[in-house]
Design a protein around this nucleic acid. Sequence first.
DNA 1: TTTACAGTGGGCAAAAGTGGGTAAAAGTGG
DNA 2: CCACTTTTACCCACTTTTGCCCACTGTAAA
Lengths: 147, 147
Amino acid sequence: MFRGGTPISLDNKGRLAVPVKYREGLISLCAGRLVITADPSSCLLVYPQPVWEPIEQKLNSLSSFNPQTRSLQRLLVGNASDVEMDGAGRILVPPPLRQFAGLNKDVVLVGQGAKFELWDDEKWNLQIESALVFKDGIPPELDGFSL
Amino acid sequence: MFRGGTPISLDNKGRLAVPVKYREGLISLCAGRLVITADPSSCLLVYPQPVWEPIEQKLNSLSSFNPQTRSLQRLLVGNASDVEMDGAGRILVPPPLRQFAGLNKDVVLVGQGAKFELWDDEKWNLQIESALVFKDGIPPELDGFSL
DNA sequence: TTTACAGTGGGCAAAAGTGGGTAAAAGTGG
DNA sequence: CCACTTTTACCCACTTTTGCCCACTGTAAA
């Protein structure tokens, strides 16, 4: 499982060097083959290819007639892009996705269980600040859960 | 169980010397392997690695579509970082987390049961003062409980 | 007063992260 | 279908960070 945020700078070719601590795991898990796509939160999602597969199948099985699920299909499946780590452990973030997520030079790669999120650093910091309080009360899912 | 607050100074590399009274316990419990992450209260949480694991699993199992739990996943899992005590019983507090919690040179490591909290000393003192009174009444969880 | 040890600081080497040059491949237009 | 431009992939070099080690200081106990 992946966890933790790593500040990384994209070079001027749009390449992202995967932190060494994740490389070995990614190579054994998916031979460095990743799928990168758009997330509704204006960040990118980075999946090991075998982790992505069932998610894509599930999305494709949703009703084409429900506008909400149709939008979700378009966003996620429609933006998904196969990328592969090069010899130096870097991946090229496709220009359209870079633009979608507003990625500038400084980005943050965030481990989230079986996948990663990729954020522009400014957006990430704003996101984190907004998580500091539960302004609408505590979600029922968290009943009986303690840190 | 860990208890009590210890004032510690971070050196200029951001390293924190774990108090000797905790070292033996931490080594036998987790071989010096800790997980340090962000807390909504703008301090850091320090878990022995095996104590953290189930918490992360629980967090990862929450819904990705609920904005509140998503934020919590991002804050906690997205900032979690594996650290290991060095030969001198020190851990390196990752720079992004140092910044998140506003840690300067003087910090306080606070034992809280199975985990620790790590505070900038100024924030800790403010926190303590604000805990002195229940200004919004007594939480129902405390019914029938006395110190 | 001496000794031991917790706490602190800093040097050094290895590894990670970053940047750029060049060649091959893909895409575009005539 | 061919030529040209742009993009991508691979390689190498440099800078910064991290991990490991050892030395110094202050406090507490003998």
